[in-house]
Write a protein that binds this DNA or RNA. Structure first.
Lengths: 212, 212
DNA sequence: GTCGTAATTATGCAAGTGTATAATTTTAGC
DNA sequence: GCTAAAATTATACACTTGCATAATTACGAC
Protein backbone atom coordinates (compact mmCIF):
# COMPACT_ATOMS: atom_id res chain seq x y z
CA UNK A 1 0.00 0.00 0.00
CA UNK A 2 2.63 2.47 1.08
CA UNK A 3 4.50 3.87 -1.88
CA UNK A 4 7.91 2.46 -1.05
CA UNK A 5 9.70 4.22 -3.87
CA UNK A 6 13.41 4.38 -3.36
CA UNK A 7 14.79 7.89 -3.44
CA UNK A 8 18.11 6.79 -4.86
CA UNK A 9 20.15 3.71 -5.60
CA UNK A 10 23.61 2.89 -4.40
CA UNK A 11 26.05 2.21 -7.18
CA UNK A 12 29.52 0.77 -7.11
CA UNK A 13 32.25 3.31 -6.69
CA UNK A 14 33.67 2.48 -10.10
CA UNK A 15 30.35 2.88 -11.92
CA UNK A 16 29.62 6.19 -10.20
CA UNK A 17 33.05 7.57 -10.93
CA UNK A 18 32.75 6.62 -14.56
CA UNK A 19 29.24 8.07 -14.85
CA UNK A 20 30.44 11.33 -13.34
CA UNK A 21 33.44 11.41 -15.63
CA UNK A 22 31.32 10.81 -18.73
CA UNK A 23 28.86 13.51 -17.73
CA UNK A 24 31.82 15.81 -17.19
CA UNK A 25 33.26 15.08 -20.63
CA UNK A 26 29.93 15.75 -22.28
CA UNK A 27 29.55 19.11 -20.62
CA UNK A 28 33.16 20.09 -21.13
CA UNK A 29 32.76 19.34 -24.83
CA UNK A 30 29.59 21.40 -25.02
CA UNK A 31 30.43 24.39 -22.88
CA UNK A 32 34.10 24.33 -22.04
CA UNK A 33 35.76 23.57 -18.73
CA UNK A 34 34.30 26.57 -16.91
CA UNK A 35 30.93 25.97 -18.50
CA UNK A 36 30.87 22.48 -17.06
CA UNK A 37 29.54 23.44 -13.64
CA UNK A 38 29.34 21.09 -10.71
CA UNK A 39 25.55 21.40 -10.70
CA UNK A 40 25.32 20.77 -14.43
CA UNK A 41 27.49 17.67 -14.19
CA UNK A 42 25.46 16.32 -11.29
CA UNK A 43 22.22 16.83 -13.18
CA UNK A 44 23.60 15.15 -16.30
CA UNK A 45 24.64 12.16 -14.19
CA UNK A 46 21.27 12.08 -12.40
CA UNK A 47 22.76 12.82 -9.04
CA UNK A 48 22.84 15.71 -6.61
CA UNK A 49 25.84 17.95 -6.56
CA UNK A 50 27.03 16.94 -3.16
CA UNK A 51 27.92 13.50 -4.42
CA UNK A 52 30.68 14.85 -6.61
CA UNK A 53 32.59 15.96 -3.56
CA UNK A 54 32.25 12.45 -2.22
CA UNK A 55 34.11 10.94 -5.16
CA UNK A 56 36.42 13.78 -6.11
CA UNK A 57 38.20 16.11 -3.74
CA UNK A 58 37.44 19.12 -5.93
CA UNK A 59 36.21 20.10 -9.35
CA UNK A 60 39.82 20.39 -10.44
CA UNK A 61 40.32 16.79 -9.41
CA UNK A 62 37.28 15.68 -11.42
CA UNK A 63 38.42 17.58 -14.50
CA UNK A 64 41.88 16.06 -14.36
CA UNK A 65 40.43 12.58 -13.95
CA UNK A 66 38.12 13.14 -16.89
CA UNK A 67 40.98 14.34 -19.06
CA UNK A 68 43.12 11.34 -18.23
CA UNK A 69 40.19 9.02 -18.88
CA UNK A 70 39.57 10.56 -22.28
CA UNK A 71 43.19 10.56 -23.40
CA UNK A 72 43.65 6.94 -22.42
CA UNK A 73 40.51 6.09 -24.35
CA UNK A 74 41.77 7.85 -27.49
CA UNK A 75 45.14 6.16 -27.29
CA UNK A 76 43.47 2.79 -27.09
CA UNK A 77 41.37 3.54 -30.14
CA UNK A 78 44.32 4.32 -32.38
CA UNK A 79 46.59 1.68 -30.92
CA UNK A 80 44.41 -1.38 -31.32
CA UNK A 81 43.88 -1.65 -35.10
CA UNK A 82 47.51 -1.41 -36.13
CA UNK A 83 48.99 -3.57 -33.41
CA UNK A 84 46.51 -6.40 -33.81
CA UNK A 85 47.33 -6.68 -37.49
CA UNK A 86 49.68 -9.45 -38.57
CA UNK A 87 50.44 -8.19 -42.08
CA UNK A 88 53.29 -6.15 -43.50
CA UNK A 89 54.53 -2.90 -41.99
CA UNK A 90 52.85 -1.08 -44.86
CA UNK A 91 49.54 -2.71 -43.95
CA UNK A 92 49.95 -1.62 -40.35
CA UNK A 93 50.74 1.93 -41.43
CA UNK A 94 47.61 1.93 -43.59
CA UNK A 95 45.53 0.60 -40.71
CA UNK A 96 46.96 3.22 -38.37
CA UNK A 97 46.16 6.09 -40.71
CA UNK A 98 42.70 4.76 -41.45
CA UNK A 99 41.85 4.26 -37.79
CA UNK A 100 42.99 7.78 -37.00
CA UNK A 101 40.73 9.24 -39.68
CA UNK A 102 37.55 7.26 -39.11
CA UNK A 103 34.92 7.26 -36.41
CA UNK A 104 35.07 6.98 -33.46
CA UNK A 105 38.43 8.77 -33.43
CA UNK A 106 37.10 11.36 -35.84
CA UNK A 107 34.24 12.72 -33.82
CA UNK A 108 32.91 16.19 -33.05
CA UNK A 109 33.02 15.61 -29.31
CA UNK A 110 36.68 14.65 -29.40
CA UNK A 111 37.60 17.83 -31.22
CA UNK A 112 35.50 19.87 -28.84
CA UNK A 113 37.22 18.20 -25.90
CA UNK A 114 40.63 18.84 -27.37
CA UNK A 115 39.80 22.49 -27.78
CA UNK A 116 38.18 22.86 -24.37
CA UNK A 117 41.11 21.29 -22.57
CA UNK A 118 43.83 23.19 -24.42
CA UNK A 119 43.91 26.12 -22.01
CA UNK A 120 44.18 23.94 -18.99
CA UNK A 121 46.73 21.70 -20.67
CA UNK A 122 49.01 24.65 -21.32
CA UNK A 123 48.75 26.02 -17.80
CA UNK A 124 48.37 23.05 -15.48
CA UNK A 125 51.62 21.03 -15.26
CA UNK A 126 49.78 17.81 -14.42
CA UNK A 127 47.66 18.08 -17.53
CA UNK A 128 50.62 19.16 -19.61
CA UNK A 129 52.42 15.96 -18.63
CA UNK A 130 49.48 13.80 -19.66
CA UNK A 131 49.26 15.58 -22.99
CA UNK A 132 52.96 15.47 -23.79
CA UNK A 133 53.08 11.76 -23.06
CA UNK A 134 50.11 10.98 -25.28
CA UNK A 135 51.31 13.19 -28.11
CA UNK A 136 54.84 11.81 -28.12
CA UNK A 137 53.46 8.29 -27.98
CA UNK A 138 51.31 8.85 -31.04
CA UNK A 139 54.10 10.37 -33.09
CA UNK A 140 56.62 7.75 -32.07
CA UNK A 141 54.28 4.99 -33.18
CA UNK A 142 53.75 6.77 -36.46
CA UNK A 143 57.48 7.26 -36.96
CA UNK A 144 58.18 3.60 -36.22
CA UNK A 145 55.55 2.51 -38.70
CA UNK A 146 56.93 4.80 -41.39
CA UNK A 147 60.46 3.54 -40.76
CA UNK A 148 59.32 -0.07 -40.97
CA UNK A 149 57.32 0.49 -44.13
CA UNK A 150 60.20 2.29 -45.81
CA UNK A 151 62.65 -0.40 -44.69
CA UNK A 152 60.34 -3.02 -46.06
CA UNK A 153 60.45 -1.24 -49.42
CA UNK A 154 64.24 -1.38 -49.30
CA UNK A 155 64.77 2.27 -48.45
CA UNK A 156 67.09 3.47 -45.72
CA UNK A 157 66.23 6.83 -44.20
CA UNK A 158 68.36 8.88 -41.86
CA UNK A 159 67.03 9.88 -38.46
CA UNK A 160 66.54 13.59 -39.12
CA UNK A 161 64.72 12.94 -42.36
CA UNK A 162 62.57 10.35 -40.64
CA UNK A 163 61.62 12.87 -37.96
CA UNK A 164 60.50 15.35 -40.59
CA UNK A 165 58.42 12.72 -42.32
CA UNK A 166 56.74 11.79 -39.04
CA UNK A 167 56.04 15.43 -38.20
CA UNK A 168 54.56 16.06 -41.62
CA UNK A 169 52.42 12.91 -41.60
CA UNK A 170 51.29 13.66 -38.08
CA UNK A 171 50.32 17.13 -39.23
CA UNK A 172 48.21 15.86 -42.14
CA UNK A 173 46.48 13.39 -39.87
CA UNK A 174 45.90 16.03 -37.20
CA UNK A 175 44.65 18.51 -39.74
CA UNK A 176 42.27 16.07 -41.38
CA UNK A 177 41.12 14.84 -37.98
CA UNK A 178 40.42 18.39 -36.98
CA UNK A 179 38.52 19.31 -40.11
CA UNK A 180 36.56 16.10 -40.08
CA UNK A 181 35.45 16.67 -36.54
CA UNK A 182 34.87 20.39 -36.82
CA UNK A 183 32.93 20.16 -40.09
CA UNK A 184 31.34 16.70 -40.00
CA UNK A 185 29.11 17.35 -43.00
CA UNK A 186 31.84 18.64 -45.27
CA UNK A 187 33.19 15.19 -46.14
CA UNK A 188 31.94 11.89 -47.43
CA UNK A 189 32.26 8.98 -44.97
CA UNK A 190 35.42 7.48 -46.45
CA UNK A 191 36.79 10.67 -47.96
CA UNK A 192 39.01 11.51 -45.01
CA UNK A 193 40.94 8.23 -44.77
CA UNK A 194 41.27 8.21 -48.55
CA UNK A 195 42.81 11.67 -48.64
CA UNK A 196 44.92 10.77 -45.64
CA UNK A 197 46.41 7.70 -47.28
CA UNK A 198 47.15 9.55 -50.52
CA UNK A 199 48.80 12.39 -48.64
CA UNK A 200 50.82 10.31 -46.22
CA UNK A 201 51.85 8.12 -49.14
CA UNK A 202 52.91 11.15 -51.15
CA UNK A 203 54.93 12.54 -48.25
CA UNK A 204 56.84 9.36 -47.41
CA UNK A 205 57.10 8.22 -51.04
CA UNK A 206 55.00 5.07 -50.90
CA UNK A 207 51.76 4.21 -52.62
CA UNK A 208 49.38 3.33 -49.80
CA UNK A 209 46.16 3.22 -51.82
CA UNK A 210 46.33 0.00 -53.82
CA UNK A 211 45.81 -3.27 -51.97
CA UNK A 212 49.04 -5.11 -51.35
CA UNK B 1 49.36 73.54 -5.19
CA UNK B 2 46.23 71.52 -5.54
CA UNK B 3 46.93 68.05 -6.86
CA UNK B 4 44.96 68.34 -10.05
CA UNK B 5 45.49 64.76 -11.12
CA UNK B 6 43.00 63.64 -13.71
CA UNK B 7 41.03 60.59 -12.70
CA UNK B 8 40.69 59.34 -16.26
CA UNK B 9 41.22 60.36 -19.85
CA UNK B 10 38.69 60.38 -22.63
CA UNK B 11 39.71 58.36 -25.63
CA UNK B 12 38.26 58.17 -29.09
CA UNK B 13 35.53 55.60 -29.47
CA UNK B 14 37.62 53.64 -31.96
CA UNK B 15 40.68 53.48 -29.69
CA UNK B 16 38.62 52.42 -26.68
CA UNK B 17 36.78 49.74 -28.62
CA UNK B 18 40.04 48.36 -29.93
CA UNK B 19 41.66 48.44 -26.49
CA UNK B 20 38.71 46.58 -25.01
CA UNK B 21 38.75 44.05 -27.84
CA UNK B 22 42.48 43.39 -27.45
CA UNK B 23 42.13 42.94 -23.71
CA UNK B 24 39.27 40.55 -24.40
CA UNK B 25 41.32 38.50 -26.85
CA UNK B 26 44.18 38.23 -24.39
CA UNK B 27 41.95 36.95 -21.62
CA UNK B 28 40.00 34.64 -23.90
CA UNK B 29 43.26 33.11 -25.05
CA UNK B 30 44.44 32.67 -21.47
CA UNK B 31 41.30 31.51 -19.73
CA UNK B 32 38.65 30.73 -22.32
CA UNK B 33 35.51 32.66 -23.13
CA UNK B 34 33.89 32.11 -19.74
CA UNK B 35 37.15 32.80 -17.99
CA UNK B 36 37.35 36.19 -19.64
CA UNK B 37 35.19 38.04 -17.13
CA UNK B 38 33.92 41.56 -17.59
CA UNK B 39 35.88 42.70 -14.56
CA UNK B 40 39.04 41.00 -15.79
CA UNK B 41 38.75 42.59 -19.21
CA UNK B 42 38.15 46.02 -17.72
CA UNK B 43 41.19 45.70 -15.50
CA UNK B 44 43.37 44.53 -18.38
CA UNK B 45 42.25 47.55 -20.40
CA UNK B 46 42.82 49.92 -17.43
CA UNK B 47 39.20 50.86 -17.21
CA UNK B 48 36.29 50.22 -14.88
CA UNK B 49 33.81 47.54 -15.79
CA UNK B 50 30.93 49.90 -16.39
CA UNK B 51 32.63 51.28 -19.47
CA UNK B 52 32.27 48.02 -21.31
CA UNK B 53 28.52 48.37 -21.27
CA UNK B 54 28.96 51.80 -22.78
CA UNK B 55 30.68 50.43 -25.86
CA UNK B 56 29.09 46.99 -26.12
CA UNK B 57 25.49 46.12 -25.42
CA UNK B 58 26.48 42.93 -23.59
CA UNK B 59 29.41 40.63 -22.99
CA UNK B 60 28.11 38.48 -25.82
CA UNK B 61 28.35 41.48 -28.09
CA UNK B 62 31.93 42.15 -27.01
CA UNK B 63 32.94 38.53 -27.55
CA UNK B 64 31.47 38.47 -31.04
CA UNK B 65 33.18 41.73 -31.94
CA UNK B 66 36.49 40.38 -30.65
CA UNK B 67 36.10 37.20 -32.67
CA UNK B 68 35.36 39.07 -35.86
CA UNK B 69 38.30 41.40 -35.22
CA UNK B 70 40.64 38.48 -34.73
CA UNK B 71 39.46 36.53 -37.76
CA UNK B 72 39.76 39.54 -40.01
CA UNK B 73 43.24 40.10 -38.69
CA UNK B 74 44.28 36.52 -39.44
CA UNK B 75 42.84 36.67 -42.94
CA UNK B 76 44.80 39.80 -43.66
CA UNK B 77 48.01 38.18 -42.49
CA UNK B 78 47.75 35.23 -44.85
CA UNK B 79 46.31 37.20 -47.73
CA UNK B 80 48.89 39.93 -48.04
CA UNK B 81 52.12 38.06 -48.87
CA UNK B 82 50.76 35.99 -51.74
CA UNK B 83 48.63 38.64 -53.38
CA UNK B 84 51.33 41.31 -53.33
CA UNK B 85 53.70 39.03 -55.14
CA UNK B 86 54.19 39.55 -58.88
CA UNK B 87 55.92 36.26 -59.66
CA UNK B 88 54.66 32.94 -60.97
CA UNK B 89 51.69 31.06 -59.55
CA UNK B 90 54.13 28.63 -58.00
CA UNK B 91 55.89 31.50 -56.24
CA UNK B 92 52.60 32.74 -54.88
CA UNK B 93 51.71 29.27 -53.64
CA UNK B 94 55.08 29.06 -51.90
CA UNK B 95 54.56 32.47 -50.33
CA UNK B 96 51.10 31.50 -49.17
CA UNK B 97 52.29 28.30 -47.49
CA UNK B 98 55.25 30.04 -45.92
CA UNK B 99 53.17 32.89 -44.55
CA UNK B 100 50.70 30.43 -43.06
CA UNK B 101 53.46 28.57 -41.25
CA UNK B 102 55.51 31.45 -39.88
CA UNK B 103 54.99 33.99 -37.16
CA UNK B 104 52.79 35.91 -36.63
CA UNK B 105 50.27 33.47 -38.06
CA UNK B 106 51.88 30.62 -36.17
CA UNK B 107 51.52 31.88 -32.65
CA UNK B 108 50.48 30.35 -29.33
CA UNK B 109 47.83 32.97 -28.72
CA UNK B 110 46.18 32.33 -32.07
CA UNK B 111 45.90 28.64 -31.36
CA UNK B 112 44.57 29.33 -27.90
CA UNK B 113 41.99 31.67 -29.38
CA UNK B 114 40.98 29.12 -31.97
CA UNK B 115 40.45 26.55 -29.26
CA UNK B 116 38.67 28.91 -26.89
CA UNK B 117 36.23 30.08 -29.53
CA UNK B 118 35.43 26.63 -30.95
CA UNK B 119 32.55 25.95 -28.57
CA UNK B 120 30.88 29.24 -29.25
CA UNK B 121 31.51 28.93 -32.97
CA UNK B 122 29.69 25.62 -33.09
CA UNK B 123 26.71 26.83 -31.09
CA UNK B 124 26.22 30.49 -31.94
CA UNK B 125 24.94 30.96 -35.53
CA UNK B 126 26.46 34.43 -35.83
CA UNK B 127 29.91 33.09 -34.96
CA UNK B 128 29.42 30.05 -37.12
CA UNK B 129 28.79 32.31 -40.09
CA UNK B 130 31.96 34.29 -39.47
CA UNK B 131 33.96 31.09 -39.19
CA UNK B 132 32.51 29.39 -42.25
CA UNK B 133 33.20 32.44 -44.36
CA UNK B 134 36.81 32.71 -43.21
CA UNK B 135 37.49 29.02 -43.57
CA UNK B 136 35.99 28.75 -47.05
CA UNK B 137 37.89 31.82 -48.09
CA UNK B 138 41.19 30.33 -46.99
CA UNK B 139 40.61 27.03 -48.74
CA UNK B 140 39.38 28.65 -51.92
CA UNK B 141 42.47 30.78 -52.13
CA UNK B 142 44.60 27.71 -51.59
CA UNK B 143 42.72 25.75 -54.24
CA UNK B 144 43.05 28.59 -56.75
CA UNK B 145 46.78 28.80 -56.12
CA UNK B 146 47.20 25.05 -56.55
CA UNK B 147 45.17 25.10 -59.76
CA UNK B 148 47.22 27.95 -61.14
CA UNK B 149 50.53 26.36 -60.18
CA UNK B 150 49.53 23.06 -61.76
CA UNK B 151 48.25 24.79 -64.87
CA UNK B 152 51.51 26.68 -65.12
CA UNK B 153 53.33 23.33 -65.10
CA UNK B 154 51.17 22.17 -68.00
CA UNK B 155 48.92 19.89 -65.96
CA UNK B 156 45.16 19.89 -66.19
CA UNK B 157 43.34 18.70 -63.08
CA UNK B 158 39.67 17.87 -62.82
CA UNK B 159 37.53 19.66 -60.25
CA UNK B 160 37.00 16.75 -57.84
CA UNK B 161 40.67 15.91 -57.78
CA UNK B 162 41.52 19.55 -57.23
CA UNK B 163 39.16 19.68 -54.27
CA UNK B 164 40.89 16.70 -52.69
CA UNK B 165 44.28 18.28 -53.18
CA UNK B 166 43.07 21.50 -51.54
CA UNK B 167 41.57 19.62 -48.61
CA UNK B 168 44.75 17.64 -48.08
CA UNK B 169 47.03 20.66 -48.35
CA UNK B 170 44.77 22.63 -46.08
CA UNK B 171 44.97 19.80 -43.59
CA UNK B 172 48.78 19.72 -43.57
CA UNK B 173 48.91 23.45 -43.12
CA UNK B 174 46.31 23.38 -40.36
CA UNK B 175 48.03 20.50 -38.65
CA UNK B 176 51.45 22.10 -38.79
CA UNK B 177 50.00 25.43 -37.71
CA UNK B 178 48.40 23.75 -34.76
CA UNK B 179 51.49 21.86 -33.68
CA UNK B 180 53.70 24.87 -34.13
CA UNK B 181 51.47 26.98 -31.95
CA UNK B 182 50.68 24.34 -29.36
CA UNK B 183 54.30 23.22 -28.97
CA UNK B 184 56.35 26.30 -29.81
CA UNK B 185 59.62 24.82 -28.61
CA UNK B 186 59.31 21.56 -30.52
CA UNK B 187 60.42 23.03 -33.86
CA UNK B 188 63.25 25.08 -35.26
CA UNK B 189 62.24 28.54 -36.54
CA UNK B 190 62.09 27.64 -40.23
CA UNK B 191 61.36 23.95 -39.78
CA UNK B 192 57.61 24.32 -40.11
CA UNK B 193 57.49 26.15 -43.46
CA UNK B 194 60.14 23.79 -44.78
CA UNK B 195 58.13 20.71 -43.89
CA UNK B 196 55.01 22.41 -45.16
CA UNK B 197 56.49 23.12 -48.57
CA UNK B 198 57.84 19.59 -48.94
CA UNK B 199 54.51 18.09 -47.94
CA UNK B 200 52.29 20.34 -50.03
CA UNK B 201 54.66 19.79 -52.93
CA UNK B 202 54.50 16.03 -52.48
CA UNK B 203 50.71 16.08 -52.34
CA UNK B 204 50.14 18.20 -55.44
CA UNK B 205 53.08 16.74 -57.34
CA UNK B 206 55.28 19.82 -57.62
CA UNK B 207 58.69 20.55 -56.19
CA UNK B 208 58.23 23.69 -54.13
CA UNK B 209 61.58 23.71 -52.37
CA UNK B 210 64.12 24.78 -54.96
CA UNK B 211 64.14 28.41 -56.05
CA UNK B 212 62.51 28.99 -59.40
C1' DG C 1 14.75 -8.02 11.57
C1' DT C 2 17.94 -4.31 13.19
C1' DC C 3 21.72 -1.78 13.13
C1' DG C 4 25.77 0.56 11.75
C1' DT C 5 28.12 2.46 8.11
C1' DA C 6 28.79 4.40 3.92
C1' DA C 7 26.41 6.50 0.02
C1' DT C 8 23.45 10.03 -1.09
C1' DT C 9 20.71 14.08 -0.47
C1' DA C 10 19.63 18.61 1.55
C1' DT C 11 20.85 23.04 2.96
C1' DG C 12 23.74 26.97 3.50
C1' DC C 13 27.51 30.22 2.58
C1' DA C 14 30.95 33.36 0.77
C1' DA C 15 32.83 34.78 -3.48
C1' DG C 16 32.32 35.87 -8.29
C1' DT C 17 29.24 36.68 -12.32
C1' DG C 18 26.71 39.90 -15.80
C1' DT C 19 23.98 43.78 -15.91
C1' DA C 20 21.39 47.91 -14.65
C1' DT C 21 21.37 52.54 -12.94
C1' DA C 22 22.97 56.59 -10.63
C1' DA C 23 26.80 59.66 -9.65
C1' DT C 24 30.95 61.94 -11.25
C1' DT C 25 34.39 63.94 -14.38
C1' DT C 26 36.25 65.40 -18.75
C1' DT C 27 36.09 67.95 -22.81
C1' DA C 28 34.39 70.47 -26.75
C1' DG C 29 31.66 74.54 -28.29
C1' DC C 30 30.29 78.94 -27.42
C1' DG D 1 35.23 80.70 -18.26
C1' DC D 2 30.58 78.34 -18.59
C1' DT D 3 27.77 74.88 -19.77
C1' DA D 4 25.83 70.80 -21.51
C1' DA D 5 26.54 66.42 -23.35
C1' DA D 6 29.26 62.49 -23.54
C1' DA D 7 32.65 59.47 -21.35
C1' DT D 8 33.86 57.29 -17.34
C1' DT D 9 33.39 55.78 -12.67
C1' DA D 10 30.78 54.15 -8.66
C1' DT D 11 27.39 51.42 -6.53
C1' DA D 12 23.90 48.02 -6.21
C1' DC D 13 21.39 43.75 -7.30
C1' DA D 14 19.98 39.23 -8.54
C1' DC D 15 21.93 35.09 -9.82
C1' DT D 16 25.46 31.39 -10.33
C1' DT D 17 29.57 29.32 -8.77
C1' DG D 18 32.43 25.87 -5.92
C1' DC D 19 32.62 24.12 -1.54
C1' DA D 20 31.47 22.76 3.25
C1' DT D 21 28.59 20.64 6.54
C1' DA D 22 24.50 18.54 8.39
C1' DA D 23 20.59 15.53 7.59
C1' DT D 24 18.77 11.46 5.38
C1' DT D 25 18.64 7.05 3.08
C1' DA D 26 19.97 2.41 1.38
C1' DC D 27 21.83 -1.92 2.17
C1' DG D 28 25.04 -5.55 3.77
C1' DA D 29 26.55 -7.93 8.26
C1' DC D 30 25.04 -10.19 12.10
Amino acid sequence: MAEERRKFKRESAQARREALICATLELVAEHGVRGATVRGIAERADVTQGLIRHYFSSKEDLITAAYEYHMTHMTDLTEAPASQLQGTARDRLVAFVEASLTAPVVDPQSIALWASFLNKVQNDPAMKAIHARTYADFRDRLEALIAAALGEAGQVTEAGQLRHLAIACNAVIDGLWLEGGALPDAFEPDELPKIGLISVGAIVGLNLTHSS
